[in-house]
Structures are given as structure tokens and as C-alpha cells.
């Protein structure tokens, strides 16, 4: 990660933490993230957007940070932004779950020492990893094509669909290993799991993106699909 992005993330963490409305985020200049430096902006790329939105997904999932950064962008870019929010929130759900099972004891042992709990969390971690990878690969593609959503249509569809499909397992396992405490208003878990449920349906649910991607793949043909995937990256 570049030094500039590190600083950007530090700022995002500092500004977002505890923010109860969008005003401090606006004041900190996040609307300028994608504006070129020549026009007085930050001159960031989608990798920066991804990093900032992953933090927003953890700290301020209910504030319209993505809307602020993207202004009047194409809805497909909003779908892409949602993938980053989801990756962040899923990482947080995993972190909270690990923390919890390493603290809570039952039957005289930490929950995390029970193999059934370990195996569930491994399954969840794989889903989180998949979404993080999808977000990162989508960001790389968007930056490679100058953020033209038409040139990244395949990646947007694939990444949003993959993220949507991870929501079920991630929220279910996170709540299961938390027990009743995770179902309370006081405890932080719902601060990421409810947004995840909401984001699954926002800017294209599973059926929406699966149809688009499925028709695109079918149009390419069996062999053509592989050729397209390899031609689009690495």
C-alpha cells in the first residue's frame, strides 16, 4: 500500500470513528477523493475508494460515504462501492466473532477451542477472504480501465454477486457463535450484520447480477468465457 493511501486510511479511521452524521466526513474533504489533483482534488484511484469504503463499512455503515465520494456516478459504480463496504463489514464480523470466541467460556473451555466452532469460523473466513479478493480484483480492474463501468462490467457483476452470496454464511455464522449477546441492541455485531443484509439487496441483488453475468458468459460460449477471463486480467 502506498504511503498516501496509508495516510488516507488513517484520516478515514480518525474522522469516521464516532461520526454520527455525514458532516465531519464532508468537512474532511472525502468528496474530493476521486477529483483529479489538477482540479483541486485528492487525485485518488479506485484502490483508494476501496480502502476508504472498507473502513466506512466497519465504522459508519449507515452514513452515505459512498454517495458522497461517488457524487452522480453510474449505478454500476455504486454496486462496486457496495462490494468494498461489504468486504469491510464482513472483515469486522469475523474479527468480532474471533474476539468473542476467544473470550467466552462454556463447559470450562473457551468457545474457540471447540472444533465445531473452529470449523464454522473457518468456513466464514473463507467467504470473507473471497469477498476481500473480489473487492481487490475489482478495484484493480476499475483502475486499469479508467473507472469506465462498461469496461469493468464483468468484474462488477462477478464481485457484487460473490459478495451478495457470502452474506448468508457470514451473518449466520457470526450470530451463531455469538449466542444471545450478539442479538442485543447494545452489542456491536448488528452494526455490521444489518447493513450486510441491506447491501445484499442494494444496487443489484443476486438475481440481478447473476442474470447479467450469466447472459454475458453464455454469449461468450464455454471456451470464450475462459478466453475472456484470462484476457481481462493476468
Amino acid at each position: 500500500m502506498s504511503a498516501a493511501r496509508d495516510m488516507l486510511c488513517d484520516t478515514a479511521r480518525a474522522v469516521f470513528t464516532g461520526a454520527s452524521d455525514i458532516a465531519p466526513v464532508e468537512e474532511a474533504g472525502f468528496a474530493l477523493l476521486l477529483i483529479p489533483e489538477a482540479e483541486g482534488g485528492f487525485g485518488g484511484d479506485w484502490g483508494d475508494v476501496d480502502a476508504v469504503l472498507q473502513i466506512a463499512g466497519v465504522t459508519v455503515p449507515d452514513l452515505p460515504v459512498a454517495e458522497l465520494i461517488l457524487a452522480d456516478a453510474d449505478d454500476r459504480l455504486r454496486a462496486a462501492a457496495t462490494v468494498s463496504l461489504m468486504a469491510g463489514a464482513m472483515g469486522q464480523a469475523l474479527a468480532l466473532s474471533i474476539e468473542h470466541v476467544n473470550m467466552r467460556q462454556q463447559f470450562g473451555r473457551l468457545l474457540g477451542k471447540f472444533q465445531a466452532v473452529q470449523q464454522s469460523l473457518a468456513v466464514m473466513a473463507c467467504e470473507v477472504r473471497a469477498v476481500e479478493a473480489a473487492a481487490a480484483a475489482l478495484a484493480a480492474r476499475l483502475d486499469a480501465v479508467g473507472r469506465d463501468p462498461s469496461a469493468a462490467d464483468f468484474e462488477i457483476a462477478a464481485a457484487k454477486l460473490r459478495a451478495n452470496r457470502a452474506v448468508g454464511v457470514v451473518t449466520a455464522v457470526a450470530h451463531q457463535v455469538h449466542g444471545a449477546i450478539g442479538f442485543t441492541e447494545e452489542y456491536d455485531l448488528h452494526r455490521v450484520t444489518i447493513p450486510l443484509m441491506r447491501w445484499r439487496g442494494a444496487h443489484g441483488n443476486d438475481a440481478h447480477w447473476a442474470q447479467i453475468l450469466g447472459r454475458q458468459a453464455a454469449g461468450l460460449g464455454g471456451r470464450g468465457l475462459w478466453e475472456a477471463i484470462t484476457a481481462r486480467g493476468a
Binding site: A158, A207, A210
Partner: peptide, 22 residues
């Protein structure tokens, strides 16, 4: 393809794309 088949193909495609990145 019909919608059900397109959905399946779409979901499988999203998965291989993601797996390839990983």
C-alpha cells in the same frame, strides 16, 4: 439461456472468477 440457467451460469462464473483471483 432461460433465466434459471442464466442464473446458474452467472453464479458459477462469479465463483471461478473469484477463485482465480485467490
Amino acid at each position: 439461456p432461460d433465466p434459471a440457467l442464466a442464473t446458474l451460469i452467472g453464479e458459477l462464473t462469479a465463483e471461478i472468477w473469484t477463485l482465480r483471483q485467490l
